[in-house]
Computed example of a mutant assay.
Amino acid sequence: MSREEFEFMGRKIFENRHELAKLFSENIPKYTTEHFEKFKMPQEEYMEFRAELIGYFGEALY
């Protein structure tokens, strides 16, 4: 892959980090439910944390 392709993918991941975090949570409900209960973390905070991690991944590509 070229540098431009990595940059494009990275920017798209970063720009859509909140939507991607939501998709992850929708597709692994058992894990997220257990995680919320175990750590007593509000869902909104957990989603923001997940979006931040996804954003870092996107930034790493560009």
Rank of each mutant, 00 (worst) to 15 (best):
H35D: 01
A60C: 03
G55V: 05
F8D: 02
R11K: 11
Y31S: 06
M41T: 14
L23I: 09
H18L: 11
T33A: 14
A51H: 03
E44M: 06
E44W: 00
L20M: 08
K40F: 01
K12R: 15
F8R: 15
R3T: 04
G10K: 02
R50I: 05
E48R: 08
F24C: 12
E45A: 08
S25H: 09
M47S: 12
E52R: 12
E19A: 13
T33Q: 08
T32C: 07
K40G: 02
R50C: 04
P42L: 07
E44A: 08
F14S: 07
G10Y: 10
H35R: 10
E5F: 13
L20D: 04
G58E: 07
A51C: 09
S2K: 11
E7A: 13
S25Q: 12
E26A: 08
H35I: 02
A60S: 11
R17H: 10
F24E: 13
R17P: 13
M47V: 08
F24L: 13
E59N: 09
I54W: 06
Q43L: 06
F6W: 13
G55Y: 04
E19P: 01
I54A: 05
N16W: 00
N16Y: 01
Y46I: 01
N27D: 05
N27C: 11
N16C: 03
K38L: 14
E37K: 06
A60T: 04
K12F: 06
P29M: 03
P42N: 11
P42Q: 04
Y56N: 12
E45M: 15
M41S: 01
F57S: 01
Q43D: 11
R11F: 00
M9R: 15
G55N: 01
E5D: 03
F49C: 03
R50N: 05
R50K: 00
Y56P: 00
A51G: 07
E44D: 03
I13Y: 15
E44T: 03
R3G: 02
E19R: 10
F39H: 14
Y46N: 00
K12L: 09
E52Y: 11
E19H: 07
M1S: 14
R50L: 08
R17I: 05
G10R: 04
E45K: 15
L23R: 10
P42R: 15
K22I: 07
R50P: 00
F36C: 05
E5C: 03
R3Y: 02
F49Q: 04
F49W: 02
N16M: 08
E52L: 02
G58R: 08
L23S: 10
E4I: 10
A21D: 09
A21K: 06
E7F: 04
T33R: 12
L61H: 05
M47E: 15
N27L: 03
H35F: 14
M1Q: 09
A51L: 01
